[in-house]
Design a protein around this nucleic acid. Sequence first.
DNA 1: CGACTTCTTGAGGATATTCAAGAATAGTGG
DNA 2: CCACTATTCTTGAATATCCTCAAGAAGTCG
Lengths: 252, 252
Amino acid sequence: MGNRLRLVTDSVADSIRRCQACPLNALCLDEAPSGSAPPQQPCLEQRCMHLTGGEHLFRVSDEVDQHLHIIRKGDIKLYQHGRDGGQHIIEFLGPGAWIGLESLNEDQRHAGAVALTNCEIASVPYAMLTSLLDRQPRSAEAFGQLLSGTIARHQQHAAMLRSTSAVQRVAQFLLHRLEQAQAAAQDMARATLPMSRQDIADYLGLTSSTVSRCLSALRRRGWLSMGQRAFTLPGREDVELVAAGAPLALDD
Amino acid sequence: MGNRLRLVTDSVADSIRRCQACPLNALCLDEAPSGSAPPQQPCLEQRCMHLTGGEHLFRVSDEVDQHLHIIRKGDIKLYQHGRDGGQHIIEFLGPGAWIGLESLNEDQRHAGAVALTNCEIASVPYAMLTSLLDRQPRSAEAFGQLLSGTIARHQQHAAMLRSTSAVQRVAQFLLHRLEQAQAAAQDMARATLPMSRQDIADYLGLTSSTVSRCLSALRRRGWLSMGQRAFTLPGREDVELVAAGAPLALDD
DNA sequence: CGACTTCTTGAGGATATTCAAGAATAGTGG
DNA sequence: CCACTATTCTTGAATATCCTCAAGAAGTCG
């Protein structure tokens, strides 16, 4: 582990704020009761590691370390190797997301996880999770929601991939990213795009050229405004129409 | 419910044989201990319903009935409505598969389930499952495997959809179907194809015409042999190459 | 056996990919 | 801080692929 495993020294108040926003909250109740005294040592502080962009959390075929990881800051991509050599992105994960549910009873990782930006990752041993599930009825419920949520996300991704048109897929991707950003912070009209075009292409089943073309087409119409690594959708209504299948010529 | 809910009258021996093959086995141990006396009333017998081809197990927007379903016989397709009107197939499920994990903490079904053939479905209330999980450590383990298995299947499906070529997707689909058949019964070189071409197309993100063309192309080369609703792969090696990305002209 | 649906196959057109080269960005070291 | 390199991004033209539309064949069900 070495330098990757480092104790976080944020203020307690800051940690509590984060704890309430994250889906682990229901599980946290057990360790840090919201009753009388304010929690001395927020639950998530236990084991928190930092990753710099490009660093791996784990690789394909790594042995499973019996931990679940929760993203506190930053973005992670989950990927697999395609049979044709290229890499297939399974999912882009942001703050609040859990990593490791897919390896619950596996020996080896069948996917890799890389940091896209600098990340702060909290790790919880399986054992702690199961003991919480035993003692806290609310935890089991939260866990169930987490699982059905994971399956729902995969189905949504599959729906994206089945969309025949390329612009349609890209539009759905942008909208999905924006919705996620808004779920994390209200009134957030801006979403980040920390992954490369190649990553987006591998996620949507396209080539990076086509992704570029689609983005340019949306930009040309003024429906998409892109900064360095973030974007807004001034013409969100129109983008939603495109996502729903409205035809759109790539070349103006 | 009415005629759909009917007690099964198979022989006890037959039921035990099935029980051992199905993933519920670990859960069954609790109700039907394998010790002294042979089980009088196999656990799965409790509530078993029959569906004829085309009949729905549940539809989109149905309220969740707090039951998990296990397929004992037959094939089921899980689908969603695409935004463009067409239906998107999430998954084809066969004997031994569980249905309902995706609705664990949901109010409404976000997918529909239809029988492709005549089916025999066992239903278990959530309550029974959770009580088993409390009492049987092995059950929790089996449940975890079930969940990670579900996620793994979704990832495999996503990999299919990302494959750029149509023949590639179809080849992967056939191989996957064959592997599943072989997992269920050793030395089974034949797999069934109970769904329509349109269903396959909706599953792979293609049109039924293209699916037909791909199947014909494989047949013309003698790599695929199709009967009524079943197929074999005499040229499995070649089909695997195609699945891996080897080019293949559709027209001979 | 007849009506219905599903499947196959054809030709033409739309769309994404490939290949490639130039522009923009990020990262590195003086 | 700036220049230099490497990578990523954009865009073009030509090709291959898949879709649309359609009609005939095959299969299914009464």
